[in-house]
Nucleic acid binder design. Structure first.
Length: 555
DNA sequence: CTGGGGACGGGGCCC
DNA sequence: GGGGCCCCGTCCCCA
């Protein structure tokens, strides 16, 4: 009986214990679940905040860049490549690769020329943008952040700073501080890559790569600065000939990938730069017909732009070019002389070793990256043409190259050189270079008297007759003189009565095509110009102007 | 409206 | 291959 009671007792104890245990487990599970839910909620909120901050920062920087360019260089050429963020006359961000390209000019470059001077404010424009990673802590203290530095000397961007501070307050430790390079010495031993480059602007140091190719021996100023830790390809024609103090490079990974790449050390890097192997490959060239635009370096934009797509926060950068306007007298060597058509891709190919470093993250604006030489070599444009993203969009752009029998336009001469934009064929390299300025808007020849720019030297020379008053073409009938032969020829129709342009509607004839064109509007009834005073419509602006002067001059 | 000139962009050819 | 020139077309402006 006693045994029976004992068994019952133990059974009851066991069941009670079981109930208690189950209750405890349930409680623990509940607590864990609750905490986990809270934790996840907090995590997702933090991530969301970080994303929003990052996006906001990018937008702000984009806006600032665009406004700055628009304000400072109304005539500048603007290349916008929404994705690849290329800006003319400055480095080209070809996806993961940072290829800083500038014209390999000769005389137009002067080392003593001012760097990136804002023409209005007189301040230089070193841009420093720091984009914080979303999960810098997760990546670790040594983790890199995507860095774009955008800093204007003497000009603090409060919003920018605020955003950065906000980012820090949100738990994102900024691995790289915004450094006022103008006022703050850099005692750190680990400056970011962009800081390195910025210092290259302000210091006397430059990272220059001499171009030694025999076929381009006339180009002594091909300066390259760029890919850190990347030695030139063995057959590269570029030599690092000036390299100063050792630099430590702090590169950064794309913050947007921080979570996914926490364990991907290949994307997080801190590269100690060995000065001996530091051929910063900023190809100091901007001409579209050369360098990374160049067909000969097609890999720059055909391959390089692809590998990090989606991983790089690209802040479109509009080139503020011509900070030191290129001045080219008629007898000066044009900047396009002596550039390399050759192994541009050689030094680009060295990216392989750096795929995980610079390629990923650096999106420094050109101003920050130019050295004095590259600054002054920025080509220019006088008509504010806006470039098109197609420039980078395909390997088709890499077509300007010798293609045997590749002529596309009828000519007895073999046109081996194809325009990378329109595929038109030209017989020699220079011709296609000049032609491509049609597409690029590059105007490297600057009139010293009126700052007008021209794409061709002969056009500049012709233009300068405007200033000199030279009119070498005189009409034998009336002694009237003209500055252009074509003007004389056209004028002579006055004497000959020739009217080669006839209206198909009324058979009126005109000596000038423009006059016929204007006349056609009479038939078309097209009157797009309306007088704001009386509502009368005119087919030509000049008609409207004349009308307003006559009828409404008192208004 | 028409006539005409100034200036410029671009292609092609020649030296 | 590079520079210069010729030529054509076009835009803009003015009388």
């Amino acid at each position: 009986m006693a045994n029976c009671d004992g068994v019952v007792f133990h059974t009851q104890i066991a069941s009670i214990m079981e109930v208690l245990a189950n209750a405890a487990v349930t409680e623990i599970c509940k607590l864990v679940d609750d905490d986990y839910a809270v934790f996840r909620l907090e995590m997702s909120q933090s991530q969301k905040e970080n994303r929003a901050l990052r996006r906001k920062l990018q937008l702000l920087e984009l806006k600032v860049s665009r406004e700055r360019v628009l304000a400072s260089r109304p005539n500048s050429v603007k290349i916008f490549d929404g994705y690849r963020g290329m800006a003319r006359g400055e480095e080209h961000f070809t996806g993961g690769h940072r290829n800083f390209v500038k014209p390999a000019g000769l005389k137009p470059w002067r080392d003593d020329q001012p760097i990136a001077i804002n023409e209005e404010t007189g301040t230089s424009t070193q841009h420093v943008i720091v984009i914080e990673p979303a999960d810098a802590e997760a990546v670790g203290p040594g983790a890199s952040s995507l860095v774009k530095q955008e800093k204007t000397e003497g000009e603090e961007d409060p919003q920018h700073s605020r955003d950065i501070q906000t980012g820090a307050a949100a738990g994102v430790a900024p691995p790289v501080a915004v450094v006022d390079l103008a006022t703050t010495p850099q005692p750190r031993t680990r400056p970011s890559i962009t800081e390195v480059i910025l210092k290259s602007e302000t210091d006397t140091e430059t990272h220059r790569l001499l171009h030694t190719g025999s076929d381009h021996g006339s180009d002594p100023e091909r300066l390259l600065l760029g890919r850190l830790g990347c030695s030139p390809a063995p057959d590269s024609k570029y030599l690092l000939y000036e390299n100063s103090s050792p630099r430590t490079v702090h590169s950064h990974q794309d913050s947007s990938d921080a979570l996914e790449t926490v364990n991907d050390l290949s994307r997080s890097y801190m590269t100690e730069m060995d000065p001996g192997i530091m051929p910063l490959v900023l190809e100091t060239q901007t001409d579209l017909s050369r360098g990374d635009w160049n067909p000969y370096s097609s890999r720059v934009y055909s391959e390089g732009c692809l590998d990090k797509k989606g991983e790089v926060i690209v802040i479109d950068e509009v080139k503020v070019e011509g900070d030191a306007p290129l001045t080219c007298n008629a007898d000066e060597t044009p900047i396009w002389k002596g550039y390399s058509q050759g192994n541009t891709s050689d030094f680009l190919d060295c990216r392989d070793g750096l795929e995980t470093s610079l390629d990923v993250a650096i999106h420094s604006p050109s101003h920050a990256l130019r050295d004095p030489v590259s600054t002054s070599m920025a080509p220019s444009d006088s008509h504010g043409r806006v470039f098109f993203d197609q420039v980078f969009n395909s390997n088709d752009r890499a077509r300007v190259q010798t293609q045997g029998g590749g002529a596309t336009s009828g000519n007895s001469k073999e046109k081996r050189f194809l325009c990378m934009f329109c595929n038109k064929g030209f017989s020699c390299l220079q011709k296609v270079e000049i032609h491509q300025r049609v597409h690029t808007g590059e105007n490297p020849f600057n009139c010293t008297q009126c700052e007008k720019r021209f794409s061709r030297q002969d056009h500049l020379k012709r233009h300068q007759r405007v200033h000199t008053g030279e009119k070498p073409f005189s009409c034998p009938q009336c002694e009237k003189r003209f500055s252009q032969a074509g003007d004389l020829k056209r004028h002579q129709r006055v004497h000959t009565g020739e009217k080669p342009f006839s209206c198909t509607q009324c058979h009126m004839r005109f000596a000038l095509a423009g006059n016929l064109k204007m006349h056609l509007k009479v038939h078309e009834g097209e009157r797009p110009f309306t007088c704001m005073h009386c509502g009368k419509k005119f087919s030509e602006r000049s008609y409207l102007r004349t009308h307003q002067q006559k009828k409404h001059s008192s208004v």
